[in-house]
């Protein structure tokens, strides 16, 4: 087991190095560089002065020296200055992280709250009308693009029915820390979370349904039935114990996927998170922020995938044998 964890962690290192290298090259291809954010706003800077600053910041060094320095700083959390916001990128991102993490976390919770009961029902009563309904729902959810669904949710629940606010992550008039603030926060979360969750259930439902159908015919279930275990307990104690564990392990993939996929939902609901910051920054050509965000979400995916792989191997020893 320890060997597997060690090997999987070591596998992550070349991935991270390659990722940072690709993003560094991408950043080099973008117009502007690390000093643009800090000094280009000053119209008095002469070309000679800029050249001096470039020399001082080592922008005339060979690329591998620059890459080493950039990576060293990034590891310590220094991503340079944002040109449009005139503040360190780290501060800017830190202000948004909470919103995106909240959104992803609640979306993941909602996905499980919807998917697990539906998956169990569909798997237990296969070919019943409930199963057919769930399979149809799953099929439609699979085919629906996130942005179309989020827009329809916005239109129906925020505008036509007017149940929820349509923009922002909290009402700005309410003071932070009060009960009303929390309520407003929650109200602003409902639509983005539900838009992500309702069509995000596909994989989980499908996996659970197939796995339960698979387990039903296994010998150990026959044994359980033969010794007189009541039907409800066959499911709750025998089948589900086997089927639910891998689902828990998928959490890692799920959350990293959500952080990356939040671009659409955050843009549509004007939710102040990392995805919206990414779109805003790229529209303003604020490339220091863009680079930092791509690096962060790439790293999150690498780490999340690793965690899920490790949890999955803990839960299911067959995976380790490979």
């Amino acid at each position: 087991m320890l060997k597997f964890i060690l090997r999987r962690t070591l596998l992550m290192i070349p991935q991270l190095i390659l990722l940072s290298l690709v993003i560094f090259m991408l950043a080099k291809a973008m117009p502007g560089d690390a000093i643009t954010g800090a000094f280009m706003g000053n119209p008095d800077a002469t070309p000679e002065q800029i050249e001096k600053i470039r020399e001082k910041f080592g922008l005339n060094d060979p690329w591998y020296v620059q890459y080493g320095r950039w990576l060293g700083k990034a590891v310590q959390g220094d991503f340079g200055m944002s040109y449009t916001h005139q503040q360190p990128v780290t501060t800017l991102i830190a202000g948004r992280v909470e919103n995106t993490v909240l959104l992803s976390l609640f979306t993941a919770i909602m996905i499980y709250l919807i998917a697990i009961p539906l998956g169990i029902i569909a798997g237990r009563w296969t070919d019943s009308w409930a199963d057919k309904l769930i399979v149809t729902y799953n099929y439609v959810a699979f085919a629906t693009p996130t942005f179309v669904f989020a827009l329809l949710m916005l239109f129906v629940f925020a505008f036509v029915l007017g149940w929820f606010p349509y923009t922002g992550s909290v009402d700005i008039k309410i003071e932070s820390g009060t009960w009303a603030y929390m309520v407003s926060r929650a109200e602003h979360l409902v639509l983005p979370v539900m838009s992500g969750a309702i069509i995000g259930t596909v994989g989980t439902i499908q996996y659970l349904r197939n796995d339960i159908i698979d387990q039903k015919t296994k010998e150990y279930i026959k044994t359980a039935r033969a010794k007189g275990v009541p039907e409800g307990r066959v499911y709750s104690r025998h089948i589900l114990r086997n089927s639910l564990l891998p689902i828990a392990a998928f959490l890692g993939y799920e959350i990293t996927g959500l952080i990356g996929g939040s671009v659409f939902i955050e843009t549509i609901f004007s939710y102040q998170g990392l995805g919206q910051l990414f779109i805003q920054s790229i529209n303003l050509r604020d490339f220091t922020v863009v680079t930092a965000l791509v690096l962060i979400s790439g790293t999150a995916v690498v780490v999340g995938t690793m965690l899920s792989d490790i949890i999955l191997s803990l839960v299911d020893p067959r995976i380790r044998i490979e």
């Binding site: 991935q15 390659l18 990722l19 690709v22 991408l26 291809a29 973008m30 117009p31 990356g260 996929g261 671009v263 990414f278 779109i279 790229i282 050509r285 863009v290 965000l293 791509v294 979400s297 790439g298 995916v301 690498v302 995938t305």
Partner: peptide, 19 residues
């Protein structure tokens, strides 16, 4: 291929389209 799969695809496409 595994490496390509961990790249944040949407963000990469958007960055490429812009630059």
């Amino acid at each position: 291929l595994e490496f390509m799969m961990v790249l944040p695809t949407t963000m990469f496409i958007i960055v490429f389209v812009t630059i």
